[in-house]
Design a protein around this nucleic acid. Structure first.
Lengths: 343, 343
DNA sequence: ACAATCGGCGTTCGCGCTAAAGTAGAATAA
DNA sequence: TTATTCTACTTTAGCGCGAACGCCGATTGT
């Protein structure tokens, strides 16, 4: 087995607790003893057994994260950034994916709780709040991200999605577009809020917002390209068709642009597009894609700080952190590719 | 606190061990008692405390995974697939990212071991084998993936990268190309093996393989586009320049194609390209990109099965599982985009 | 009839660690 | 002096579980 406190204590002729105290930086140990213990720990390459520590102390220095889809660049980047913050503070990340399935999500919540995570960060794929009631009677604090439940008093970290909808739409308006459509998502707070932002912007500029210009689909995250393609075909049949489209995400935009080009129209001359997410490859697409960047790395960092705070002090009143997003303009809206690739 | 075995035992007037035995499906419990216990477990929504179980039994039903980069689609997809397999078998996934930094990797190995993972799966970013010596004296079995150390007798799961190099190069040869270059990676086994496959294919077809046609760079994973761009500019200065290029990955290919187009050449008429990884967006790029698909989901599944096997039976002699890859041809090599998007 | 067996359950112990409560001796205070 | 307070430790008592073993009454075999 690995080295235990007991081994170090035996070697040095002190008690296990003394060694444990040195490990945790407890004040009431003499300088002499502390040095001897630390020296021996290094020599033996001691690593504390977190299970034992967790059992005894109730803290595991582990944060749980549940995302709907690991492959999605947004969640992957968030997880990466979060993991970086946790690592510098000696915490581990226990990561699970719910595959956009509420049943799986529930199971993963159980799994993580049974592993004793100190905090649970979750982008829930649920419509209702069932799973969180179950969380309620536990001691583990949780932190929602990306997807919020307005009626649940919970900690939250995410983009300001109303603002996302506003700046994306405003960008199209600023380019002189008048008939702006929206291909949106369904059933999640970002989808809802971006739609609201879209409407806000149209209203603020006295532009019409015909109801058939705003369409909403499910599964925009997994198969956005197909959905964008179909949705755009639908929008193209309207008369007049839109001259600009704000898409829920980049994949949707890619599909929508595809449909537009196949219909013999030009992008952005006939129809301009903007997506969300600022995909890594946005600049290398057939039509380089304008997009709203969510500053995901910063989001992950903030979530990490917040989570660590919650793990030392779980009893805080609910707090929301919203980060601002910004538009990255490329050919799909402004028509000329910038000299330098923009990220 | 959460429900414990003790609570159930008290409620039913039996001993804790009896309840524990029911939980684990131990044979020597009467049908009557078993039913009562299971019923009460459901009522109280009992979840075993994995830390306690881990301490007492030495098994945690947790698999650790360390990848160099979570955001990389290959690793993300692998992790997703692996996590799926583990979930169906009641195992959890403890995920860490080494950020391509051997120091971080070492720290993450320690972290995961101190959490008592039953198996450690790792795509190491190390050149030497230092970290694994440390692993050696522990009891935890480990499973390398993607990146192998030929001189280390270890379990391995990954693509057959020699074959990857061969089929990619053969694809270009089959299209009639004669001057085939390779923009490769550096310092990892896939980079080395793909280069070997490339050479094999050229040799088997009696084609020349000038040494300055095979270039190798580091950091191809993180900033492949930039590297591909620069590498291609270099290759274009040769005389004669190549008429086809096999790129280490898709991002490199994207950069290389960019350089080619900027030089006023046509893809694939003047130069054909093939990458590796079969990026989700490969079909939507300026030039839809031909690529080698690694069947990552299957790879993750196999790794999951292997890991579970190792966790129940750690003392196996080293075994390697290599999965075959296949070419997905798109415009960057064959010149015409297929009707249906191919994935 | 009596040992041998077996199904069904309980007891004991300890995994590696920490929180809390000692304790012995030295220093300080009244 | 004698009580008080520190300092630097040690002892005790679990955290929630599982492995190993123990035990008791009922059945079986001869």
């Amino acid at each position: 087995m690995a080295v235990r406190l007991k081994d170090i204590a035996r070697d040095l002729g002190v008690s296990v607790v003394t060694v444990s105290k040195v490990l945790r930086g407890n004040a009431d140990i003499g300088e002499e003893t502390r040095k001897r213990v630390l020296k021996r720990m290094k020599e033996l390459n001691y690593q504390p057994n977190m299970m034992a520590r967790g059992l005894a102390s109730g803290r595991t220095f582990t944060v749980g994260l549940i995302v709907p889809d690991l492959v999605h660049p947004f969640f992957a980047e968030f997880a990466k950034s979060l993991g970086g913050v946790l690592r510098t503070r000696q915490n581990a990340l226990l990561l699970a994916s719910s595959e956009e399935d509420p049943e799986v999500e529930l199971q993963e919540i159980r799994t993580l709780l049974s592993r004793g995570v100190d905090v649970l960060i979750i982008a829930s794929c649920q419509a209702n709040l069932r799973n969180f009631y179950e969380l309620g009677d536990k001691r583990t604090p949780y932190l929602l991200f990306d997807r919020n439940f307005p009626h649940l008093a919970a900690h939250f970290v995410g983009s300001d999605d109303v603002q996302v909808g506003e700046i994306a739409t405003q960008h199209l308006i600023d380019l002189g577009r008048k008939r702006i459509a929206h291909i949106g998502g369904k059933g999640t707070s970002p989808a809802f809020d971006r739609l609201r932002g879209y409407r806000n912007a149209l209203h603020a500029n006295n532009l019409p917002s015909p109801t058939n210009y705003a369409v909403a689909y499910e599964k925009t995250e997994e198969s956005g390209d197909t959905i964008g393609f179909q949705a755009m075909q639908q929008l193209l049949r309207l008369s007049p068709p839109p001259d600009a489209v704000f898409c829920y995400n980049d994949l949707t935009a890619i599909g929508a642009i595809d449909a537009t080009l196949q219909a013999g129209l030009r992008v952005p001359e006939d129809i301009a597009f903007i997506g969300c997410g600022n995909l890594r490859y946005a600049n290398y697409l057939r039509v380089p894609l304008s997009s709203v960047d969510h500053n995901t790395t910063e989001l992950g960092r903030l979530a990490g700080e917040f989570a660590l705070e919650l793990s030392t002090d779980p009893e805080q009143s609910p707090r929301s952190i919203l980060t601002p997003s910004h538009v990255v303009a490329r050919a799909s809206s402004i028509g000329t590719t910038p000299e330098k690739p923009t990220r």
